[in-house]
Measured scan of single mutants.
Amino acid sequence: WVPTKREEKYGVAFYNYDARGADELSLQIGDTVHILETYEGWYRGYTLRKKSKKGIFPASYIHLKE
C-alpha cells in the first residue's frame, strides 16, 4: 500500500459496491470517500458519512475530485 500523494484526496462513488470481506468498504452511489492509500487498482479509506469504518474498495468505482 502506498500513501496518497496529496494530503486531502477525495472521490465520489459512481457505482454501488458491496463489501465481500471484513477488510472491504461498502459504497453507495454518491458517497464521498477520503482516500488514504492506493494499491494495484484499489483504494483504502473511509466514507464521510461513516468515518469510523475504514476499508478497501475498487478504484474503478470512484471519480476523483480535483
Rank of each mutant, 00 (worst) to 15 (best):
L27K: 02
K50S: 13
H34R: 15
I56F: 12
A19K: 04
K9V: 10
A22G: 10
F57Y: 01
S26N: 07
L64A: 02
G30L: 02
I62C: 07
S52H: 13
T4N: 08
K54F: 12
Y46I: 04
I56Q: 04
L36V: 06
I56E: 00
P3S: 07
R20N: 08
E24K: 03
G11P: 00
L64Q: 03
N16E: 08
G45S: 05
H34T: 07
L64H: 03
F14I: 15
G55F: 03
I62M: 00
A13N: 00
T47L: 15
K5S: 14
D31F: 08
Y43D: 01
T32Y: 15
S26E: 04
A13D: 01
F57D: 01
W1T: 09
A19L: 03
W42T: 00
K9P: 03
H63G: 07
K65V: 15
E7F: 13
K54N: 07
Y17V: 03
K54C: 14
S52Q: 10
G55I: 02
T4Y: 08
A13R: 03
K50N: 15
E40H: 08
K51W: 11
K5Y: 09
K53V: 12
F57V: 02
R49H: 12
G30I: 04
V2Y: 10
G55A: 02
L27T: 00
G21P: 02
A22I: 10
I35M: 12
A13Y: 03
I29A: 10
D23R: 06
D18F: 11
K5V: 09
T38Y: 13
G41E: 06
R49F: 12
I29V: 12
H63N: 09
P3V: 06
L36G: 01
K5M: 10
Y15N: 14
D23T: 06
L25S: 00
I62D: 02
Y15H: 14
H63C: 15
A22W: 09
A59D: 03
I56L: 12
R44W: 15
P3C: 10
T47H: 10
V2G: 08
K51S: 11
D18Q: 14
A19N: 02
L25M: 04
P58T: 03
Y46S: 04
Y39E: 02
I35N: 08
S60T: 09
E66R: 13
Y46D: 00
R6Y: 10
V12I: 12
I62Y: 01
S52C: 14
Y43C: 06
K5L: 11
N16S: 11
L25Q: 00
E40W: 09
Y17I: 02
L64R: 04
E37Y: 08
F14C: 15
Y43N: 00
I56S: 04
E24R: 03
A22C: 10
R49P: 12
K54W: 11
T38E: 14
Y10P: 01
P3M: 02
Y43M: 08
P3L: 04
L48M: 12
R20L: 08
Y15T: 13
R6I: 11
E66Q: 13
T47D: 05
D18P: 05
F14W: 14
R20H: 07
R20P: 03
P58H: 04
T4R: 06
A59V: 08
I35H: 00
S26Y: 04
L36K: 02
D23C: 13
Y10I: 11
T47F: 05
G11Y: 04
I62P: 00
F57I: 01
F57A: 01
K65Y: 15
F57M: 03
K53G: 05
P58Y: 06
K65A: 11
K65E: 11
A22D: 13
K51F: 08
E7L: 10
R44L: 13
R49E: 11
Y46V: 05
E40D: 13
L36Y: 06
A59L: 04
P3R: 04
D31M: 06
G21H: 12
K50L: 13
Y61N: 06
V2W: 09
Y10S: 04
A59T: 06
K54Y: 12
S60N: 09
K9G: 05
L64I: 12
K53Q: 12
G11S: 01
D18G: 05
E40L: 12
A59G: 05
S52I: 08
L36W: 03
I62A: 01
V2M: 11
Q28P: 00
H63F: 10
T47K: 15
G30M: 04
N16Y: 06
P58D: 02
R6C: 14
R49D: 12
H34S: 06
Y46M: 04
K5C: 14
V2P: 08
A13E: 04
L48E: 09
T32D: 06
R49K: 14
R20W: 06
R20A: 08
E8G: 11
A19H: 01
